[in-house]
Computed example of a mutant assay.
Amino acid sequence: MLFRLAIACGLIAATVAVQASFMSAGLGVFRRLEKERRDLLLRYPMLVTVVWIIYLIAPIALDVVLWATFYYLAQALPNFEEALYFSTVTFTTVGYGDIVLGRDWRQVATFEAVNGWIIFGWATALMMAVIQRLYFTRTPGQD
């Protein structure tokens, strides 16, 4: 059991690294746009918001695939399609329950759910930070 929990912690570390990498790169681009193309951000805040949100969904999808790959390689689920579906439902904490892991792997799935909860909270915070910058930051000369 400890071995499986160690694997779960490793997967959490991997997904945090994925998120941190994407978010750091995305925020770097956003900061550059604020300095060099402020007019673009002011003119198209909705488009920038849509692009930012889609961008933040990409690493979440990668995180889900990481967990699914683990379930498949560990033979916790019979095929990759089921592993991907189970991982998506678990990571998003929807938890339909139509596909379940065997007794040996159930505890690992709870770690994935907690992982998803943390990642979604983090992504939501960054979405709001960018939205605040786009819609609520005053520019010089604005009243």
Rank of each mutant, 00 (worst) to 15 (best):
P59E: 11
E34W: 09
A83L: 07
L77D: 05
I53G: 03
R4W: 11
K35Y: 14
N79S: 14
P45G: 11
T110H: 06
F111H: 10
Y72A: 06
V65C: 00
V94R: 07
Q132N: 13
R103P: 13
F80C: 09
L126P: 01
Y72N: 13
G10Q: 09
E81Q: 14
A17Y: 03
K35S: 14
A20E: 07
L47Y: 12
F120W: 12
D63Y: 01
W122R: 03
Y71D: 02
R38A: 12
E112G: 00
C9E: 08
S87N: 05
F22N: 05
R103S: 15
V100H: 03
A123W: 01
Y96A: 12
F30Y: 15
G10L: 15
V94G: 04
V29R: 07
E82R: 08
G26E: 05
Q142P: 05
T93I: 14
A6G: 04
A76N: 07
M23C: 08
A17W: 02
I53R: 03
P45H: 10
A6R: 10
A20G: 01
V114L: 15
L73W: 12
I54P: 00
L84H: 02
Y135P: 06
D39S: 10
A17P: 10
Y55P: 02
L134N: 04
L27R: 08
F70K: 02
R31E: 13
V130G: 03
L47G: 05
F22E: 06
L126F: 15
C9Q: 10
L62W: 15
G28S: 15
M23P: 00
Q142S: 13
L77P: 01
E36H: 13
Q19Y: 11
A13E: 03
W52C: 05
R32P: 00
Q75N: 04
T139E: 13
G116I: 01
E112F: 04
L33P: 04
A113Y: 01
W67A: 03
I118T: 10
F86P: 01
G116K: 00
R4N: 14
R32S: 12
T92Q: 04
